[in-house]
Design a protein around this nucleic acid. Structure first.
Length: 479
RNA sequence: GUCCCGUUGGUCUAGUGGUUAGGACUCAGGAUUUUCAUUCCUGCAUCAGGGGUUCAAUUCCCCUACGGGAUACCA
């Protein structure tokens, strides 16, 4: 049935809404999105909220918002209704129940009345004996009478999959090619919990089929669950989607990327001043690479370049240094107006000047930082009178004649143009007798608070005549 | 423990049965700049180890080591 329905490419990102979008999730979402774009398919967002104990208020909104900020729009999903909804698994429980009944009827699944206490006990015993911890199938062969009796007694039960007990299963992964598992290693997986909600394994198989998903692109942590999923497809008589398991994103110690070792949420990186463009580009390169040396790709370009065939097998360390470098690249090359817009939220400690001046300030800042958040510090001298330490005061003391010379000349100007500044610079050498560092350092120190920094004309242009004079007068005679 | 997956400089990676193993980040040095930043140049450093197969293996096969994932009424 599934194989004749349609040959459209449909992929899905199916996160569990536990609070925020993880960068690993972003990478998975991105690859799904890119693959869909590349082949003209559909990108679907499905919310896997079948674990009632992990419900987090606002998590879905948050997730969708993060996806939106980085530009990954989905074709179907929450609030973007398509023909395959609902897109929340918690709203599909009826569907799962029907399918569970089907499996029960086919004797491909069975009810298990074991309590979690009993299961814990079973596992500790198995461990003590050095055995694998696995469900031992004790409820597999309960008689009909016994089952009915337990049900009428009101005993809680789960439904487990009756997986084959011997032999092996081989399947093909788009990224990893041929993979074989012995059935012995596959547990009688719980398909429906005692609260009536399905587990991931059941829901994901049913939904992927019903939503006509053609390719499952997800993290490698799911690889070992594939046998039971495939077995489910077989029991339902469905054709399974193609699978592509992506390499994991790693901490610097090579363990799976986790919160303990730094930020993992997309929103954290955004809050730190990384641009959406950077995040997308960077994460795209963690596990995928074009055939050449190129590393800077806009989302639109990735849509053209991407290919599942070029996805790597080995996990990739999330290297913040390189992220910063790349963010610097985007900060400097993206359109200034856009960067200004992005920078404004990071400048809320200042009273912002008129657009034109703000643009100049941000343009100065963007050229010497790696994140938006760092702009504030670099640009601060434009907003407040400099403070001087002892070393600075020494330089200022020596520069009194120079400052006086500048004030006298500037006061005669209506407006200070770049050429005026350059002229005065030359004049200073002639009339005050200073040049090179002895000329530039004191001026920059007085006007900008540091001997290092922007070129003098740039400072003049941004501060304007009045502020310039204020800053000179601030230090004249004041040593 | 068991099963599965993986392994090119510190990190992300390109690459091929015969290459001086390429690029990027980081780091070091230098050039440019009045300074800082940017930019540019140069340098350091890699095919996990051992067996095969082959005239020839980083590349193909096997073993080992190491790393990771999975082993839940979580996804």
């Amino acid at each position: 049935m599934g194989d004749v329905m349609s040959n459209q490419i449909r992929v899905r990102f199916a996160p569990s809404p536990t609070g925020y979008l993880h960068v690993g999730g972003l990478r998975t979402a991105l690859y799904n999105y890119l693959y869909a774009k590349k082949v003209g398919g559909k990108f679907i967002l499905r919310i896997e909220d079948t674990d009632q104990t992990r419900y987090v208020e606002g998590a879905v909104e948050n997730l969708i918002n993060s996806l939106k900020i980085v530009g990954l729009e989905f074709d179907e999903g929450p609030k973007v209704e398509g023909d395959f909804g609902p897109y929340f698994q918690s709203e599909r429980t009826e569907i799962y129940k029907q399918h569970i009944d089907e499996l029960l009827g086919k004797n491909a699944a069975y009810r298990c009345f074991c309590t979690s206490e009993n299961l814990d006990k079973m596992r500790t015993e198995q461990k003590a004996k050095g055995l694998d911890t696995r469900y031992d199938g004790r409820c597999r062969h309960l008689s009909k009478e016994k089952i009915e009796q337990k049900i009428t007694n009101g005993e809680k039960f789960v439904v487990r999959l009756k997986v084959p007990q011997e032999g092996e299963i081989t399947f093909y992964d788009v990224v990893r090619d041929k993979i074989t598992f012995p059935w012995e290693m596959v547990d009688d997986q719980v398909l429906m919990k005692s609260d009536g909600f399905p587990t991931y394994h059941l829901a994901n198989v049913i939904d992927d089929h019903l939503m006509e998903i053609s390719h499952i692109i997800r993290g490698e942590e799911w690889l070992s669950s594939v046998p039971k999923h495939l077995f489910l497809y077989e029991q339902f008589g469905w054709k399974p989607p193609k699978m592509a398991h992506l390499p994991l994103l790693l901490n610097s110690d090579k363990s799976k990327l986790s919160k303990r070792q730094g930020d993992v949420a997309v929103e954290d990186y955004l809050a730190k001043g990384f641009l959406p463009e950077t995040l997308i580009n960077f994460v795209a390169l963690l596990g995928w690479h074009a055939s050449g040396d190129r590393e800077i790709f806009a989302l639109k370009e990735l849509e053209k370049e991407f290919s599942l065939k070029r996805v790597n097998k080995a996990g990739a360390v999330f290297d913040i240094d390189k992220l910063k470098w790349m963010n610097g690249q985007y900060l400097r090359t993206l359109e200034l107006n856009y960067i200004v817009k992005k920078a404004i939220p990071f400048l809320d400690n200042f009273t912002l000047p008129a657009d034109d001046k703000l643009r100049k300030i941000v343009d100065f800042g963007r050229n010497r930082v790696s994140t938006l958040a760092e702009i504030e510090n670099v640009v601060k001298p434009f907003f407040s009178l400099p403070k001087f330490d002892d070393e600075a005061k020494e330089i200022i003391a020596k520069g009194q004649n120079l400052f006086k010379f500048w004030v006298e000349n500037l006061e005669q100007l209506d407006q200070i143009r770049v050429e005026d500044v350059n002229n005065l610079l030359k004049e200073s050498t002639k009339k005050v007798g200073v040049k090179g560092k002895n000329l530039y350092f004191p001026l920059r120190l007085v006007l900008f608070g540091s001997v290092h920094g922007p070129e003098l004309p740039e400072i003049f242009e941004i501060l304007g005549k009045i502020e310039i004079l204020t800053r000179f007068k601030n230090v004249i005679g004041n040593v």
